[in-house]
Design a binder for these strands. Structure first.
Lengths: 295, 295
DNA sequence: ATGTCATCATAGATTGGCTCTATCGGAGGG
DNA sequence: CCCTCCGATAGAGCCAATCTATGATGACAT
């Protein structure tokens, strides 16, 4: 069976006339005669009642008609949808982002991304680095933003910006009065995120210490609440500084100015690389220059 | 655009592999390569991401997929409907049956069904009620026999026969000497099937008790073996009585005579409704009247 | 009645595209 | 670094859709 023949059938039913239907289809009248006879033979059912004065549908044809129309309509829908997807910078784009970045980066860039890439439907997906890379390789994400450098050869990445780490302290903390905080001082009572967060490893590396606290904070917000409640100090990425200050924390630069580098990662042969690169460029352009050293 | 190419696309997506998809379609691998490249060119959209280890759908493809599936499904519906218009009582007929009924009902009726409906190619499919109904609605089955009443408005059903429940006991059991077994007595050490079997729920309801045993019996045969080995008693449907006796069990009627009602279920607008009704009539006529109260 | 018109069916030639076999090229894995 | 797997490409062959030209049939009018 062929979509073309189904269209022929619909045309003949619509016009009630082989000749005019053929004209509407842009083919000759014998073509319709032959093809529709073949269709009837293939289905084993008479579809058309050929009268001397025009053509009408048989009862069987009326029974099939809804499916015929639906099939043709779906085919048309495929073409219509494809037309709107033809632009490489359009269509759904599932973007993974690590949890220590997502809530602070997305509000700053989402509106701008929509403005710059109006046909790209960005669907953010928040998860830990390993899960993101797994999903990326399983084609469940088109790209993701992470703070480490993926060394898999099937992935490409583009540096977005560098984000300094800052010390977050309770106001009453002795270090709160210093203009900058020494990493070794911060290490004394630092609280870090649960395993799996790259920020955990990076914070411990910056402070050259190991985790000791018994708690298991799954989000930066939790961690900052703990600090605000006086349970210790922590190290936050710069984009989270505003949120930390709003929670009453004191935020100070680190003495040695450690930072993390955010990258956009995608599959090396992804058909969405053009969109990924456009997303990367847009994010670079949109992120506040206050702290960010782009590229 | 061509329905055939859409089927090729679905096959490649399903198998994730051009070679195997080609085999499934009955064509050569280059055919799929060429045709799908053409389809992509025609739509102006990359549909497949060809990796070294298999093929997957692009985001655009995922967007188009529902329409592709719908178009192919409608084409199949046309053929199915045409076939049923040609001869409603012919063609493949996938018949789902619950596991507590299939091995006892099928031997009694299959030959008779073939004799009464020689052009209907009945393909039995055994599964739990929920899976059967799911498959029925997904057009993977034409009808199914279950022991509960489906309340979905897109399904129709026809009562087949009522099947009494019977107590199955080890010969040495105290209740084995009674002419009838009281449900409350049976409840004391009743063994029931695993979750998902409607017979499990019905047995527990009949005995007004809750399951307590640690074992997880996936078939009536297993259950009867356990009873034969003296682990307890159980409740079986009447058609399984002969099998139970052959395993050395004692079978007794229940005091209150509980029973289950078997029904044939099909989709309300199925092109196979005539065949389904003929199957129902035939089963009713064929089932042994010994215990069955046919409508 | 019979010619005429309208309409669909048929015949034979042509063309285009689908499919095949054979082979290439590239990417991973050992 | 070689080997294997898998998709892409090339070129030939064949089938089917289409065209033009013509036939067949029934309605209608004179």
């Amino acid at each position: 069976m062929n979509l073309r023949d189904l269209r022929y059938l619909l045309a003949v039913l619509e016009h009630g006339h082989f000749g005019r239907a053929a004209e509407a289809c842009g083919v000759s009248q014998p073509t319709l005669s032959v093809q529709l006879r073949k269709l009837e033979a293939e289905l084993g059912v008479a579809l058309l009642e050929r009268g001397a004065r025009g053509v009408s549908a048989t009862a069987a044809c009326r029974r099939l008609l809804p499916h015929v129309q639906a099939a043709v309509a779906e085919a048309d829908a495929i073409q219509a949808e494809a037309r709107s997807l033809r632009d490489p910078l359009s269509g759904p784009f599932r973007l993974g982002i690590i949890p220590t970045l997502a809530p602070y980066l997305l509000p700053r860039v989402l509106a701008g991304l929509r403005a710059r890439l109006p046909n790209l439907e960005i669907e953010p997906w928040e998860d830990l680095t390993d899960s993101l890379l797994e999903r990326l390789r399983a084609h469940d994400l088109e790209a993701c933003v992470i703070a480490t450098e993926p060394d898999q050869p099937d992935l490409l990445s583009r540096q977005l910006f560098a984000e300094p780490f800052l010390a977050a302290l309770p106001p009453a903390h002795p270090l709160a009065d210093c203009a900058t905080v020494a990493e070794s001082e911060l290490a004394r009572d630092i609280l870090v995120l649960a395993e799996g967060h790259c920020l955990r490893d990076q914070a411990l590396a910056v402070c050259r210490t190991a985790a000791s606290q018994p708690m298991r904070a799954m989000s930066l917000v939790t961690l900052m609440h703990l600090v605000a409640a006086g349970y210790g100090t922590t190290l936050i990425p710069a984009l989270a500084a505003a949120a930390a200050r709003e929670m009453g924390l004191v935020v100070r630069p680190l003495a040695l100015g450690a930072l993390r580098t955010l990258r956009l990662v995608w599959r090396v042969r992804s058909p969405h690389r053009a969109a990924a690169e456009a997303v990367a460029e847009s994010i670079i352009a949109l992120v506040d220059r206050e702290f960010a050293t782009s590229r």
